[in-house]
Design a protein around this nucleic acid. Structure first.
Lengths: 145, 145
DNA sequence: TTTCGATGTAACTATTGACATTACAACTAA
DNA sequence: TTAGTTGTAATGTCAATAGTTACATCGAAA
C-alpha cells in the first residue's frame, strides 16, 4: 500500500499557487486543470491545507494563496495536513495477537519503538525539505526544459 | 493509507519461528494462532519470505525455519519480501498531470529526487535493524513480563 | 440589488487493495 | 495408505480513494 497521491497532489498545488500568484487567479478549476483531476478533489484538498494554516482560500471571488512563507512550509507539514496515514501511524499493526503466546502477548511492546524509529527517520527527512526548496527545483527545471 | 500489516505480521512470524524452533514444529496453524489470523494468510506470507530466501518451508511434514542467520536478515529485507508498496515506490504519484502547464509538465522530474530522498531515509533505518535485534528485544521483554 | 463566478460540502458511485475464508490438490513421513 | 501439512485458486467482504453531480453559500462588481 502506498502513501496516498493526495500528498504529491498537495505539493503540486502549492507549487502552482506560488508559481502563478502574480499572473493568474489560482482557482480550484485552474489547479484541477494542471493536476488533471476533478475540481472537487482539489477543493477538498484546499480545505485540509487551510485547516492546517498553510493556505488561504478566498470565498466568493475565488483563489488561493499561501498563508506562510514558502520556506516555512515543510513537506512534513503538508504530509500531516493531508492525513495520508491514520493517526500519524505509518505502519498498520495487526490487531488481537494471541495473548497466550509469549510472542503474541509482547509483539506490540517489542515493535513499537523500532517502528517509531523508522517512521521518525522518514519524518525528519520530510521536515528538512521546504516548499521553497521545491520552488527552486521547479525554476531550474522549467528553465532547462 | 498505511503500510500493510503484512510487514508487522512477517516480523511477528519470524520471531516466532526463531523463538520456538527447538520446542515446537512451527506450522502455519501454529503461527496463525499466535498472530490470530487465518492460516492461509500465513501460508501466503511464508511463500513470499521463502521466495526472498529468508526462510525454508517444509512441504508434507510441515514447519518453517530461517534460511539465514537472524543477524543477516534486516527489516528492509522483510519489507521488500512482503511487497508492501508497489514496485518499491513508497509514494503514489498522480498520473497524467497537464503537459501544457509548466508545473504539470515538470512535476514528476521535480519531485522524483526529493521523494526518493525521503524513501531512502526510511529504508536506511530499516536496513540498520536486524531480526537478531528484535529477538534480543523479545527476550528482554518476555523476561520482564 | 442582482448577477456571476467561485467556494464548501453532501451524496452517490466506481474502483481498488487488503484480508478472510473455503476448498482441495499435492506432498511427505510414519 | 493414512494423517498432517503445504500450496494455491476462487470467492466474498470491507474500507479507502477518487470521480462526479448537485446545489447552497458567498463576495465583488455591474
Amino acid at each position: 500500500m502506498q502513501i496516498s497521491s493526495r500528498f504529491t497532489i498537495a505539493i503540486h498545488v502549492l507549487i502552482c499557487i506560488e508559481t502563478f500568484k502574480n499572473d493568474y487567479k489560482v482557482t480550484s478549476d485552474f489547479l484541477a486543470s494542471s493536476v488533471n483531476v476533478n475540481p472537487v478533489v482539489i477543493r477538498r484538498l484546499l480545505q485540509q491545507l487551510k485547516k492546517a494554516g498553510i493556505i488561504n482560500v478566498t470565498r466568493g471571488s475565488g483563489g488561493a494563496d499561501l498563508e506562510k512563507n514558502a520556506d516555512e512550509i515543510t513537506l512534513f507539514d503538508v504530509y500531516r495536513a493531508v492525513e495520508c496515514v491514520e493517526e500519524g501511524e505509518l505502519f498498520h499493526f495487526h490487531e488481537n495477537p494471541n495473548p497466550r503466546c509469549p510472542v503474541g502477548k509482547n509483539i506490540h511492546a517489542i515493535l513499537d519503538l523500532r517502528l517509531e524509529q523508522i517512521q521518525k527517520a522518514m519524518e525528519q527527512e520530510m521536515k528538512s525539505i521546504t516548499i521553497k526548496d521545491i520552488m527552486d527545483d521547479t525554476q531550474k527545471q522549467i528553465n532547462q526544459s
